[in-house]
Design a protein around this nucleic acid. Structure first.
Lengths: 141, 141
DNA sequence: GCTGTTGTTACTTTTCACGTTACACTTGAA
DNA sequence: TTCAAGTGTAACGTGAAAAGTAACAACAGC
């Protein structure tokens, strides 16, 4: 229940595709080597990114390419593509408070008031960072 | 690696202590019943809150009480008390990118640039919500 | 001294992310 | 048309982290 390592791998892949996509065929095996992950994990991630229209992957012959300008790919979009309900999973709630207790009975809706604010703030924060910013950082580190 | 259910339990306990602390002795058994958790979990949570000076717990005879005004207890403070390094655990990073790849070699520092911004935004967001707000919500749900 | 409670350790159970294997399907080239 | 190289996806195994549980010493008040 968090922003998973898969998002970091996704960003890694996207930078890789942006930097090398036109020079060589970028396959899941190659990305698995670069990220220290394995090809199936990569394929699942690329598949999710594809469904969101961020990249296109050639079936059969292989190879991935960006299908979006860098500044339209926000962290929020990546996270949501990889894990559609990452927001609700972000903050854990104890599942079985006592319904007999006045506090236990209402705690979930009470917590939701505040947690919703935090989620919205986080979304805004994630939307503020685009792949363009990250590629810029990459060239300046 | 997320904002754990323990934080939600902690908030539940704090509301309970605020509402009933002066009417009856609030023990870990009682809080375990109300939260649907178990006494040891509660004791660990209360212990962490105590170390941060948020509450005081009577050893031997039992019973917990707030030792802070409501509006000085922020969500940030609660989260940090419960899990000191919740920030770094929030966002997962793939641990073994290839050092032979120009991207793999630098991905960690590149990601840190953006992730640090996100963490800071989240901290600010958590500091904006106090137990006073939450108790207010509790009385208005 | 007895009872109820906390503080803490160690052990067990459960859950979940991740890796692994396997295989059908697709494409392009020999 | 056959083959090699890839993708897409499902099923299963595994290992680590979270949570529950049991046990017990230390303490306060009756």
């Amino acid at each position: 229940m968090h922003i998973s390592t898969k998002c970091s791998i996704a960003i890694h892949c996207l930078i890789f595709i942006y930097e090398y996509g036109d020079k060589r065929k970028v396959t899941s095996d190659l990305l698995a080597l670069s990220t220290g992950s394995n090809p199936v994990t990569i394929r699942n991630i690329l598949s999710a990114l594809k469904k969101d229209g961020i990249i296109s992957v050639k079936f059969g012959t292989g190879g991935a390419a960006l299908s979006c300008p860098l500044d339209e790919i926000t962290l929020y979009r990546i996270c949501r593509a990889i894990e559609p309900d990452f927001g609700t999973k972000l903050i854990g709630v104890h599942p079985l408070p006592s319904p007999l207790c006045p506090i236990g009975k209402n705690i979930h809706s009470v917590l939701d008031c505040s947690y919703q604010k935090i989620r919205n703030d986080l979304y805004k924060s994630l939307r503020n960072i685009t792949l363009k910013n990250i590629v810029f950082d990459y060239h300046n580190v």
